[in-house]
Design a protein around this nucleic acid. Sequence first.
RNA 1: GCACCCGUAGCUCAGCCGGAUAGAGCACCAGAUUCCUAAUCUGGGGGCCCCGCGUUCGAAUCGCGGCGGGUGCACCA
Length: 603
Amino acid sequence: MANPGFRLGAKRANRRGMSDIAATPAVPVFSAFAAHVDAALDALVAAGTLPAGLKRAAVTVEPPRDPSHGDLATNAAMVLAKPAGTNPRALATALVAELEKLDAVTSAEIAGPGFINLRLAPAVWLEELRTIAAAGGAYGRSNVGGGTTVNVEYVSANPTGPMHMGHCRGAVVGDALASLLEAAGHKVVREYYVNDAGAQVQVLARSAHVRYREALGEAVGEIPEGLYPGDYLVPVGQALAAEFGDRYATAPESEWLALFRTRAVAAMMVMIKADLALLGIHHDVFSSEAELQASGKVDEAEAWLRAQDLVYDGELEAPKGKTPEDWEPVALPLFRSTKFGDDQDRPIKKSDGTWTYFGADLAYHYQKAQGADALVDIWGADHAGTVKRIKAAVAAMTGNDGREVPFEVKLVQMVKLLRDGEEVKMSKRSGNFVTLADTVREVGKDVVRFTMLTRKPDAMMDFDFAEVIAAKKENPVFYVQYAHARICRNMKKGADEGFAPSAANLDLLGAEELDLVRLLAQFPRQVEAAAAAREPHRIAFYLHDVASAFHSYYNLGNDRPDKRFIVSENETITAARLFLAAQIGQIVRNGLALLGVAAVEEM
RNA sequence: GCACCCGUAGCUCAGCCGGAUAGAGCACCAGAUUCCUAAUCUGGGGGCCCCGCGUUCGAAUCGCGGCGGGUGCACCA
């Protein structure tokens, strides 16, 4: 049996990519030069200077760290010298001769251990500026993703209460990553897995029942230990009372539990969606764990895995390292995750016969794999311990039909909340937690989102309210937004004085302006690299660099009026500068859009 | 005990599929505003990239072993 028998009939994604869509007229300069270096190497092969068939994966074409080295640098000679049986310098000399043939190259020099530094004609950069203008909001988008579908599952918070700050980072990172993947030419499904089937939502139903009786006038007193005490269930109880009267006030649990659970979960999801909307987050698909189970898909998964001898009835091992006092071996259906590198086999059912979270999750991931070419899950680092088993499950269940579905789990590390330097401890049980909604209201959506994206996901983060609010001026989000606002202000002022941006005389732009263009031209490769690494924070750092370069340039005008964007007595230079300003604004706007942060026009 | 993540300037962090002299913000010091919004800019000091060994033309980056911090470790999700 080649395939699991429970496929869902989701259509296989179109893998043809976007080749039938007209190519963008101009290729961003960096990818164009990667192609040029490639062609130059081909020429050396044709001339017999270089053996054929060498792998070029390690060859890079990128801007050197030190701008004084030139516009572009390639390590091709160093990387290929050894496999070619020659030395870097000889190879570099030959390569330089090839590259110098290009009109766009004004100089090609060998430097250091064998780098080749290229300087490009100003016209190349000015052309890139026109490319930005022509592409507008599409500049930076590419089709490296080839139109393949990536399913990004993020947030997936339990539907037992409002979103709190423990969910925030994963929500923002997941959302920004989804946007980034879209920009890189993937179709993206933004998905939320609703855990509406386990013990937690039964607790929710019981908690709602207490509030229901309270709404009917009963004095319920303290919410019993083990139930959710939060006030947010009060309106749920009222709605239940309004809908059902006192029909279930004294009825046995079996009569109302499932019903109340359904109602309460629905109410929680309304609340959660509203919370997410405050952050600008909207999912495409909400998958219900309860529906998945009811559909029989999980049973089918188990049956298939048993047929492969990947699920067996076995005895649960004691956890490694520390054996609990009351440890008792239990016979359970176990998935052979050890076969895929996990520490021990994992139960897919509990002793009462219901599915474990993992048991259902395994079938859920198979379901997702049916509708996507790749899967990405964004999880909090507190779930790191379960990564191996789910990766094992996906490895076991996909690829049997020859169609590999890459699956990555991106962990976002914990966020420590601080208020005036004191750590804010959150406890679900006591109902004491910092909600997402309150935080967004307090510090603003843009600050929350940008702040969550100013660290790589692997690093822990402190979120200090005092710092975020009081130190407004230092917050990088304002720095970037201010750059955009300044540009808008300038464009408007220019228009008021009768100037219009124009590409007609871009050759009037000087060295300082070209430096800015070089930085802008990096945007497409930044987007590609960030998408490939699944690291949206890189865009935030890049935007900070762009803003910084812009502010520096802007301030040149303090001492040198001839360097201002608007030079009243010189219409042609003003038109060219405003054209530049407009493209800087475009890049900032495009970048902020990926992060879901507003590009404000005034501050 | 085991697994995963982190360790870079006084503080908070970028850089890490090997590349040229290791960067930014904050803080500190000295400056810039009759002038496009100073929510900005310019300059300065500040570093055994946790330690050791290895891989190689080259290591903050890769491998191994330590040390320190975080997170998790039965039928919770």
